[in-house]
Amino acid sequence: MTVLVLAEINGQDLAVDQTAKTVSAAKQLGDVVVLCAGTGCAAAAQAAAQLDGVSKVLLADDPAYANGLAEPIAQLVADIAAAYSHILAPATASGKNVLPRVAALLDVMIISDVAGIVDGDTFERPIYAGNAIQTVRSRDAIKVITVRTSSFDAVAQTGSAGVETLSVSPQNTQSKWIEDKTQASDRPELTSAKIVVSGGRGVGSEDNFELIEKLADALGAAVGASRAAVDSGFAPNDWQVGQTGKVVAPELYIAVGISGAIQHLAGMKDSKIIVAINSDEDAPIFQVADYGLVADLFDAVPELISALG
């Protein structure tokens, strides 16, 4: 069985962690071929070739594949799909945008957000905000899967696969990229960070959110947020952790001023150690916290920063 992994590309670069975790899932299913679709992404293909377990990298380089537009990329994947038993992509915004479209083009059912592989046909996925785990067996000829990356360990970068360039001529008159508004940050990426510090509505304002960021920086951590913090404009949308945001499973997750709604827990309850700082001793977050501190965050967080400094 040969498995196709659609690499996660950010601009021209390989998103190594997301792709390496998806390759790790793919390895359990068969021989792994990685597809890099983008423009000017030869270096990304080289990086993908170093992922352990990859036997070949396909490079599809064309301006039409820049910016992750779903129409041409899904068509490309569907066009080469027949050679593969499984098609995988990380369950990122981009993977979730493209792969269901691929599945429908192939007339197969998408298997979203797979967190466990039982065998080549059988997969585990969380449903109902992670309050249930469903095991499903696919009857489709090709299994199209997005992978919950927080459930798989990244493969090492010790491989040396060959890169093959595909000759492509995509047509896309349907959709057009206009702009990306992304903020470069020196902090670790949220979904791959070892430590995540998240702030909620309790933080109170965008200015106060700096306190959360300072704590994160003291720990070399990524910054996350609850939906309420994002909706209130304290934090950007891509920091949202939860059922409908990012799913993280760091070594240490510190929830500050977050009540612990099921939708938030869905995105962080697989973290190894959870710390909650909340002034309400009955906040549900304490039910999942390994260490709970009932305190005003405006006292506790500065104290924590200096204790760690």
Binding site: V108, M109, Q134, S138, R139, Y291, G292, L293
Partner: peptide, 30 residues
């Protein structure tokens, strides 16, 4: 349906942890 639902199970539950009395206590435990 293309997916047969084999089984639906509860996710592993986290056991409740401890309350710490102070920031110093928290840092010491971490």
């Amino acid at each position: 349906p293309r997916l047969e639902i084999v089984t639906t199970t509860e996710p592993p539950t986290r056991s409740a942890g401890v309350r710490v009395g102070s920031v110093n206590d928290l840092v010491e435990k971490l």
